[in-house]
Simulated scan of single mutants.
Amino acid sequence: MLTVLVVDDSALMRRRIADLLIEAGFRVETAATGEEALARLPVVDPDVVTLDVTMPGMDGLTCLARIMVEHPKPVVMVSALTGAGAEETLEALRLGAVEAVQKPAAGSIGRIGEELVETVRAAASSRPRRVHGLRERLRLARARIAGEDFVVPEGLPPAVPPMAASPAAVAAGDEGEGVVLVGVSTGGPSTLEDILPLLPAGFPWPVVVAQHMPAAFTATLARRLDELCALRVLEVERATVLAPGMVCIARGSADVELARRGGRLQAVCVPPSPDRPWHPNADRLVTSALRLLPADRLVGVLLTGMGNDGAAAMAELHARGGRTIAESEDSAVVFGMPQDLIRRGGAGVVLPSGRIAGQLTRWLMPVGRRAGID
């Protein structure tokens, strides 16, 4: 039987989460503070920790950092998932948490409770990521949340101005019209940091990312990535013309499709499809792209995440002659999505996250423009 340590300063919330998990077959222990959680961790030795984002005394970020250094375990952050809590929750994901889920409210909890149980179960089979420079990342996290100037974390390249693609160049399609399509879920924010900041400013194709995430988070995620990347990173709030030198993060809790309007390729935010369980949905994104572009003008990248979203459509992309990358098991927080693509025979290349940017660059950039990349 899997054991979960539930950490929350609210006795009501501890009981609510514990009841959900016990009913689902977990053994549950609880702690009311970060200090108590750290003391109980080596004694309980849980398979998963659920951790409140905001607690008095030792806050959730500090407790998480201590867990990852002293007794690494899969940690699921429990948050109100509001705009006000987005900064703290995204920092928790960057510091090594597996996923963030919404706090179950009073009364009928329905899908929220199901998602919490599913996420905890998936986290039990995940691998905690070793975050380099954890103490410095924690310091920077607090500085950003406090509104201080952003400083690039150690180990990442400094940001440079994004490439400004001229309208004439885009219209002429000097590099050929094409798009990189990325599907990612559990463990995604930190995995995207392994890839997107390493793409050079001259990267010739736009990148569109379907990261399973609530709407409150994606604007903050896009802003953070924009600070780290040579490419311009933005959230798709409305129809957005695609051009070289840009990364589009699909708005959370919705879906994103490619469309052609006035002859121009665009990323379009659309209502979530009720027959698909994950949003923004990677299968829907890739399927829409295949309607507009030949497969050899698309690259599909399927990263960490539970479930199988993106695998069917990227396998079809591969079968039609398109290029695909699946993240390998040794770097994936949860191997479900890329594993399903590999199982379907749809992965052209299988790579750890740290090598994916280099592969994309070798595929898409002319040799003479890859200085310092190969």
Score class of each variant (00 low, 15 high):
Ser126Pro: 06
Arg224Lys: 13
Gly57Ala: 04
Val299Glu: 03
Ile325Arg: 07
Ile195Pro: 03
Val286Glu: 09
Glu36Thr: 07
Asn281Ile: 12
Arg139Ser: 12
Met314His: 00
Ala295Pro: 02
Glu29Lys: 10
Arg284Asp: 13
Ala171Ile: 06
Ala267Ile: 06
Pro104Lys: 01
Pro272Asn: 09
Val78Arg: 01
Glu87Tyr: 00
Val4Thr: 15
Asp340Gly: 11
Asp226Cys: 07
Gln266Leu: 12
Ser125Gln: 03
Arg276Pro: 01
Ala172Lys: 03
Val69Asp: 15
Ala215Tyr: 13
Ala123Thr: 01
Met58Glu: 07
Glu136Gln: 14
Ile195Lys: 05
Ala289Glu: 06
Leu228Glu: 04
Ala165Asp: 10
Pro244Asn: 03
Thr89Met: 03
Ala315Tyr: 02
Pro280Val: 13
Val270Lys: 00
Glu235Ala: 14
Val299Cys: 14
Arg144Cys: 09
Ala80Leu: 09
Leu134Asn: 08
Arg297Glu: 09
Asp45Gly: 09
Leu93His: 00
Arg323Met: 15
Leu285Ser: 08
Val299Arg: 01
Asp296Phe: 08
Leu156His: 13
Asp174Val: 13
Leu231Val: 11
Arg111Asn: 05
Ala146Val: 06
Trp363Asp: 02
Ser10Ala: 14
Pro274Val: 00
Leu292Lys: 05
Val179Ala: 03
Ala172Ser: 15
Val131Phe: 13
Arg355Gly: 09
Leu360Lys: 12
Cys229Met: 05
Leu298Gln: 00
Arg297Thr: 02
Leu64Tyr: 05
Arg139Asp: 15
Arg261Leu: 12
Gly354Asp: 12
Ile17His: 07
Arg121Tyr: 11
Leu95Ser: 08
Leu93Pro: 07
Ala201Trp: 03
Leu81Cys: 09
Pro104Val: 00
Ser331Thr: 15
Leu221Arg: 03
Ser10Arg: 07
Glu177Leu: 09
Trp205Thr: 06
Ile112Gln: 05
Gln102Pro: 00
Ile325Ser: 12
Pro272Gly: 14
Leu231His: 11
Gly57Ser: 05
Gln339Asn: 13
Gly96Cys: 05
Arg94Lys: 08
Gln211Asp: 09
Leu12Arg: 11
Gly133Arg: 00
Ile249Lys: 02
Arg355Ser: 14
Asn308Ala: 15
Glu114Cys: 02
Ala18Glu: 13
Leu265Ile: 08
Val184Ala: 13
Ile195Gln: 11
Ala159Ser: 14
Val4Pro: 04
Phe217Val: 04
Ala97Ser: 06
Pro157His: 07
Thr3Trp: 14
Pro42Gly: 04
Gly245Ile: 03
Pro72Leu: 12
Ala239Lys: 07
Glu29Pro: 05
Gly60Tyr: 02
Leu265Ala: 12
Asp275Pro: 04
Val299Tyr: 09
Glu148Arg: 12
Asp174Ile: 08
Arg232Glu: 15
Pro214His: 11
Pro189Met: 01
Phe203His: 10
Phe203Gly: 14
Pro352Thr: 04
His132Trp: 10
Ser126Asp: 01
Cys269Asn: 12
Ser328Cys: 05
Ser126Gln: 10
Gly34Asn: 02
Val98Trp: 11
Ala315Gln: 06
Val170Thr: 07
